[in-house]
């Protein structure tokens, strides 16, 4: 596993746009097909927006990864927000506390190959996703 990462802040809705553009550039550089690029950029957009809306002092870490001869893109969204009390409920399609469509977590999970979420109430939330070539 090799990772040379880039950390971007997530404080305002403009930051989401920058994350999308940087993820697109990284995914293209790592040789992902157009459809796969679109999937990871869309997932990044959902998760970055979640971080901006619900989190505090959020960041996105963008990494190029390699494992078993495969290349891919790994993104980690981290915040020091209120955390999620019921992860199972939060992962359900259509569940939202923010007035959105409730597809952010569940939808972005479907858009990547690996999805990991950790959250502690009062501490924050970390979501890691990976899309392989």
């Amino acid at each position: 596993m090799t990772g040379k990462g880039e950390i971007l802040p997530l404080r305002a809705s403009e930051d989401v746009v920058i994350v999308r553009q940087r993820v697109r550039a990284l995914a293209a550089q790592e040789g992902l097909k157009l459809v796969d690029q679109t999937k990871i950029v869309t997932a990044a957009s959902e998760l970055a927006r979640n971080t901006v809306i619900y989190g505090r002092d959020g960041t996105a870490l963008l990494e190029a990864v390699e494992a078993g001869g495969r290349r891919g893109v790994r993104l980690t969204f981290e915040d020091r927000g209120p955390g999620i009390a019921d992860l199972q409920l939060a992962m359900k399609d259509g569940y939202t506390t923010g007035g959105g469509l409730g597809l952010g977590l569940s939808g972005s999970k479907r858009l990547c190959n690996e999805f990991e979420i950790e959250s502690k109430v009062g501490v924050g939330t970390r979501v890691t996703i990976t899309r392989w070539r």
Partner: peptide
Amino acid sequence: AVAITLVELGL
């Protein structure tokens, strides 16, 4: 690519 992704997203 956008359409395929939207379907996968569930929209």
